[in-house]
């Protein structure tokens, strides 16, 4: 009888030297912990860490207004025709990426046409910049103080009441509806499902599904993953680096939006928009200019199915929850 373990071991005979730097692991872990703490922080609570070159710590900028937002309840999105409420946003990323994020905020009508912009960290020639963008009538930096930062708050619990199969079905139907709403034709659907194992609590660690769509030039793919901070399955917990064209924006309700773009070779481009909500839910919307479904290799690349703004809108859709 052939021992499979011995055969496995033979595959490892030419193991190259490991490149690991334990300090890098620890530094990444510290950043991930800070992000977890910051994302679940309630309004008025500043993150535990200072602004570093890599990650901007979200500063919740509520207060001073009657329409205060409670934990887990997001305000309705502002349309371009609705006067924006006085809010501040923190935007971080490369200078170019942050500029794009700023323009996106203006286009969304959230900060008005002439927001107040204050550079908190970095500058035009810096590797990374952090800006506070406030709608008119809001004083930048004036809303973050007064919080007790001595004890990081515990993360919101991971709760749901519906059957996981029902949740998966609802999420799948909603994704199809949204994609159709963007005027795209779906050619293949991978239904939403719990793709990984369950947590000790019995909750699925995440749900995800995706659709292939027909583009004018070929095909593309759009996928959404819904998970929770406590699952350790959060997709974008690593560094927000310039290599991934990562940008980060903190919304007034405490949600953190990250976007990224990766050139995956051979003309493959992947765009990602990820939203970490105050209630612990994390939604990642991702699109590529190439398909994944059956016969994918025989289909040509299309354009990016959605603009980055549309992808962010998809990730911010509150229907993507448990």
């Amino acid at each position: 009888m052939t021992d499979l373990r011995d055969q496995f071991a033979r595959l490892l005979d030419n193991e190259p030297e490991a490149p690991y730097d334990i300090d890098r692991v620890v530094a990444s872990g510290q950043r991930a912990r800070r992000r977890r703490t910051a994302v679940v922080a309630v309004a008025g609570t500043a993150g535990a860490a200072g602004l570093t070159a890599a990650v901007a710590v979200p500063v919740m900028t509520l207060g001073g207004h009657d329409d205060s937002v409670s934990l887990g309840a997001r305000p309705p999105a502002h349309s371009a025709t609705t006067p924006p409420k006085a809010h501040c946003y923190l935007v971080s990323g490369t200078p170019k990426g942050s500029k794009h994020n700023l323009m996106r905020l203006v286009r969304s009508g959230r900060v008005g046409a002439e927001p107040t912009v204050k550079t908190i960290h970095g500058g035009a020639h810096a590797h990374r910049v952090v800006m506070e963008v406030c709608s008119p009538g809001t004083t930048a930096g004036a809303q973050a103080g007064g919080a007790d930062t001595s004890t990081p708050p515990a993360g919101p619990p991971y709760r749901y009441s519906a059957d996981p199969a029902a949740i998966a079905s609802r999420l799948g139907a909603h994704l199809e509806k949204r994609v159709n709403g963007f005027g795209l034709t779906i050619t293949y659907t991978r239904a939403f499902a719990q793709e990984s194992s369950k947590l000790d609590s019995g909750h699925p660690s995440y749900f995800d599904g995706n659709v292939d769509v027909r583009e004018s030039n070929g095909s593309g793919d759009i996928g959404v993953q819904v998970t929770h901070e406590v699952t350790q399955q959060v997709p974008f917990t690593g560094e927000c680096t310039a290599a991934d064209n990562c940008t980060e924006t903190t919304l007034p309700d405490g949600s953190v939006v990250r976007t990224g773009q990766v050139q995956a070779g051979r003309g493959d481009v992947v765009l990602t928009a990820e939203v970490h909500r105050p209630d612990g839910v994390v939604v990642q919307a991702q699109e590529s200019n190439y398909p994944f479904g059956p016969g994918a290799t025989a289909q040509s690349h299309g354009d990016q199915p959605l603009t980055l703004d549309q992808l962010v809108t998809l990730a911010e859709d509150e229907a993507f929850t448990f």
């Binding site: 692991v25 990444s28 872990g29 991930a32 912990r33 977890r36 350790q232 690593g238």
Partner: peptide
Amino acid sequence: LVKLYVAW
């Protein structure tokens, strides 16, 4: 290892 650190 980063995930482990977070949950350590």
